[in-house]
Design a protein around this nucleic acid. Structure first.
Lengths: 250, 250
DNA sequence: GGTCCTTTCGTACAACGTACGAGGGATCGT
DNA sequence: ACGATCCCTCGTACGTTGTACGAAAGGACC
């Protein structure tokens, strides 16, 4: 070894990038900026990191540490365990919104980073008590992950009606008026009801707290899974893979 | 009006950008490229479009036309209708993967483009027969949209095990071996079982068709909704907003 | 002391979004 | 007929980005 000891590490670089992203948004994360923060030349980073994408993958995996439950806190009941994991996952994405879009090009391959592997392990532990066959367990894990990712992704799109500056309110109501006037939106009209559009909008979307909405969607999904587990236990012959389980007689 | 007839339109510009995105990926969509395609100067575009973000919003809304069902094809049954819409939505995102990430900064405000409004109207029509109160219908619509968005977002991350080039296989198995050797992943080990890692991986993820996985997740979610509708009908006093409906006795 | 290899980083380039402002024409008022 | 007025066009230029390239520094080995 003709070593000269490295002055940096991949982990430190990723941590620095993360700090910038959290403080000023992902768009503030540039190679030059990171280097400045580390008192290094820009190109020095490229000795630790193959490209900016490589760095982003590191950041993504670093984030995932927050997704992991302390092992002893993971409930034994599969439903409670999955719920806890889902809440943690959402909290993680809320702290680092840029990570949601990063999922698309993210992990790649199949394994992802080490923390992704741990998350997978923990998810497997959570569904261990379902009694389902392996394939169904993987299904279940993916379902929850999908729902959470989708929720976070879309909930950023709707900053809520309150954040609309008052001077922009006329523009919004005008927009609705113009389209609703065509009469092609009967259901939206029915939803908003009579009278002033602005108050109607506020009324329609009142109490639309993201936290509770998240919880409700998760419950519906898990209710469906519970039902599936029940029917799969009754008729294990189909391998629990029936395209659509028979409806409960009403 | 001192008119000189415009040579372009916002719609045409958006359509051109869309064509490029579909053919060569979203990263090929640059202002210069669009202008070249239209035999126009680059800056000409800025007379029709405030910024590239503005253009992206136009593209996003143009896409959403594909999301809409032909009105007469929308099933009367709410479950069938929501399922049909979900499938269409997924198909749309599959054709235009870049649109998924675009949801994050997308619509903004609350209304989105005109097509988004139509999608909302159609979704309202779909849930009209549920008998749920308005707030619950909005919930339901959002749930489906969230699940679909999340599924598409995450399913791009996993191009499947088949796409791993054979020469990269050792790297993958090495990666797993190294981590599993620590013994900290008992559930993953159990999942993969004994023997060769590569075939074990292939076995574990065999038959993991995205299409069926999508269908299954959607069914679980809708099963949960069905159950919710049933319990909400029984005890309308709670407004159908109980944090967790009582479990079905087993 | 020369050789070698790791680590550092200054310079440079291509590509991007877009600000600015000059020009071209068709239409209007006179 | 003619200048004023306006919409539209687009060449030029700037700042910012990721990163390719290659030179330099410096401790470890022979």
């Amino acid at each position: 070894m003709y070593d000269v000891p490295p002055r940096h590490t991949r982990e430190l670089i990723a941590a620095t990038a993360l700090a910038i992203a959290d403080a000023e948004g992902i768009e503030a994360v540039t190679m030059r900026r990171i280097a400045t923060e580390l008192d290094a030349g820009t190109m020095t980073l490229y000795h630790y990191v193959k490209s900016k994408n490589d760095l982003m993958a590191l950041m993504q995996d670093a984030i995932m540490a927050e997704q992991l439950m302390p092992a002893e806190q993971l409930p034994g009941d599969w439903r409670a365990a999955l719920t806890a994991i889902a809440y943690r996952t959402r909290a993680m994405f809320q702290r680092h919104p840029w990570a949601v879009a990063g999922l698309q090009a993210g992990g790649g391959g199949d394994a992802g980073g080490p923390h992704a592997l741990r998350h997978f392990e923990q998810s497997l532990a959570a569904v261990a008590t379902t009694g389902l066959p392996a394939a169904d367990r993987l299904d279940l894990i993916a379902m929850i992950d999908d729902y959470v990712a989708g929720f976070v992704l879309k909930s950023e799109q709707e900053p809520g009606l309150e954040s609309v500056p008052p001077e922009a309110a006329p523009a919004v109501t005008d927009y609705f008026d113009r389209h609703l006037a065509t009469g092609e939106y009967p259901h939206i009209e029915a939803l908003l009801g009579e009278g002033d559009r602005w108050t109607a909008l506020k009324r329609a979307f009142a109490g639309y707290s993201p936290d509770e909405r998240f919880a409700r969607g998760l419950q519906r999904l898990l209710d469906g899974v519970e039902r599936y587990i029940a029917t799969a236990a009754e008729q294990p012959a189909t391998g629990g893979r029936s395209r659509r389980p028979p409806r409960r007689p009403k």
